[in-house]
């Protein structure tokens, strides 16, 4: 089974939030309450247990070649779980509830998840979260149920501008690189791919849901150099070895030389 994923081309996004709605409808996710944030048109705020697509609205006092608004540009980006090649949530899960599927996506098995919350602190993108009723972790499934029926994920299906493209990863990467070249030729030199493979994002081994951006990752609330925490765990385990050895020595020393004579 070829690896499947998303290529989200943010230059095509028009901020309609059809992806958010389609996701909520298909996956039968509840609303997150209705409030006005004042953050441009973004009243969704962030991804979470009940929000698996989130459109970011960025208002910049910076001109953009493809937009005609003077010293101002508006960026939209539909954020989603990245289904990392090395996933922090998957590697840290103590129950094995989080698995890699035949589509190379990262899937949480709801009947195995024990609600420990460890994946939440291990996601370098702040994607996965616990639902507040029974504490189990929920996130985008890459519409696993739809993929099994040869359908594309609901968000990609609903996207009216094909800003969200779904398909075989190899195919998407080629398409994305061609698109960047095309944009560069049109004068949009800022365009680049975020996390399209291991080379561009070694910390996660590449993202199965990658993006085309036109500003720093921080602008879109994406980390500039994310890393799966497990890659750094060796330092901590070594330190634990040192701590244990020191404690054993202290205890033996205390008994041998510390006893009341």
């Amino acid at each position: 089974m070829p690896a499947k994923g998303f290529f989200t081309d943010t230059t095509l996004c028009i901020g309609c939030k059809a992806c958010e709605v389609a996701c909520k409808q298909w996956n039968q996710l509840p609303d997150d309450g209705f409030f006005f944030t004042g953050m441009s048109y973004d009243n969704t705020v962030a991804l979470g247990a009940s929000t698996w697509r989130h459109v970011a609205f960025i208002e910049r006092p910076v001109p953009l070649q493809t937009q005609d608004a003077g010293a101002f540009s508006w960026l939209f980006s539909s954020d989603v779980c990245k289904h990392c090649a090395r996933a922090g949530c998957l590697e840290s899960c103590p129950t094995g509830a989080i698995v890699r599927t035949e589509f190379e996506s990262v899937y949480v098995q709801p009947d195995v998840c024990n609600g420990c919350g460890y994946c939440v602190v291990n996601c370098p993108f702040g994607v996965i979260d616990r639902r507040s009723d029974d504490n189990r972790a929920w996130k985008c499934t890459l519409c696993y149920d739809r993929l099994r029926e040869d359908m594309q994920p609901a968000c990609a299906k609903a996207c009216p501008t094909e800003s969200i493209k779904f398909g075989d990863l190899d195919h998407l990467r080629a398409e994305a690189r061609a698109r960047v070249e095309d944009l560069h030729e049109k004068g949009l030199r800022e365009a680049y791919l975020y996390g399209e493979d291991e080379h561009s994002q070694p910390g996660t081994g590449g993202l199965n849901a990658f993006f085309l951006l036109v500003d720093k990752p921080e602008v879109y609330n994406l980390p500039p150099d994310p890393v799966v925490p497990t890659k750094k765990a060796k330092d901590a385990w070594t330190s634990m070895g040192v701590a244990a050895a020191g404690m054993a020595l202290a205890a033996v020393g205390a008994v041998l030389w510390g006893k009341e004579r």
Binding site: V121, N122, C123, A236, S239, A243
Partner: peptide, 23 residues
């Protein structure tokens, strides 16, 4: 190690000391 192995900056950054401190 449990908390050092995380994306939380202050924990990840002090991963070489946390197990020793806790011990």
């Amino acid at each position: 190690v449990l908390i050092a192995n995380s994306a939380i900056p202050v924990w990840q950054e002090s991963r070489r000391v946390l197990p020793i401190l806790f011990g």
